[in-house]
Design a binder for these strands. Structure first.
Length: 220
DNA sequence: AATTTGACCAACCGCCTTGCT
DNA sequence: AAGCAAGGCGGTTGGTCAAAT
């Protein structure tokens, strides 16, 4: 991250992206690869901020994205991973090929959270909720039955948990709180989750099929 | 047919970390 | 060592659409 001299701040467009903007961004990245996000709007002729371009590309335009609804296996895996590593959406998304952190987060907040609450489970702690009427004390309800038994695979075994995460399943809660941090050396050489040096300033930033350019590479 | 509700998605915001000067 | 810009992440908001009432 160099300190490039910058001109006066240009007014940037906001709101939904137009087809033309999408095409410009896609075309630019196809021709030149991913460079500095802050330069891309100017080079591609888009009146947006670099941050906005980055978000649009990662969450919507990337060719390897899955657009289909999340499967039951994916949903179960998200619940299981969340119970282990919490709101580390980037890490969770890295274990779901073609899914984005934003998508996983959205699905969690919009759907899974409500489902768990309806089942009397606190979505934050994955413990039974203590409100009267929802008290049941049955830990088996925290996770889908096939997951609660301690399996490290989802119902059909299609999406096994990566070793870097399953290794923390049996640790005590205090250790689990640091699971994400402890996982980092395994999944990335960077000191920060989701920070992969190849994701910026490199033409090879999109090599990982599941978008792990921006997240911990999953060892599935 | 009109309104309400819930699910889903796209996008922005603020904060933090990283790396360069 | 400090300051700054860029990148990255999680939280939140607002819009759209379909199903239910």
């Amino acid at each position: 991250m160099s300190k490039a001299p910058r001109g006066p701040r240009k007014a940037v467009r906001r709101g939904p992206w137009s087809r033309e903007e999408d095409a410009k961004l896609t075309d630019h990245i196809a021709k030149h690869g991913l460079g500095r996000w802050s330069d891309i709007p100017r080079l591609a002729g888009i009146e947006r901020g670099g941050k906005s371009c980055r978000l649009r590309w990662l969450n919507y335009l990337r060719p390897d994205l899955k657009r289909a609804a999340l499967s039951q296996e994916e949903e179960d895996l998200i619940i299981q991973l969340h119970s282990i590593i919490g709101n580390s959406w980037t890490l969770i998304a890295a274990c779901l090929p073609g899914r984005t952190d934003n998508g996983v987060k959205n699905f969690w907040n919009a759907s899974i959270k409500h489902k768990l609450r309806r089942r009397g489970i606190d979505p934050d702690t994955h413990e039974p909720m203590v409100d009267e009427g929802t008290r049941n004390g049955d830990a088996q309800h925290i996770l889908p039955s096939h997951l609660a038994a301690g399996s490290n695979t989802c119902s059909h075994g299609a999406l096994p948990l990566p070793d870097s995460i399953t290794s923390y399943v049996d640790t005590d809660p205090l250790e689990l709180q640091h699971g994400v941090v402890l996982v980092q050396p395994v999944v990335s050489s960077s000191s920060k989750v989701g920070s992969d040096p190849s994701s910026t300033g490199s033409d090879t930033g999109e090599q990982c099929p599941n978008g792990a350019d921006r997240a911990a590479s999953c060892s599935i």
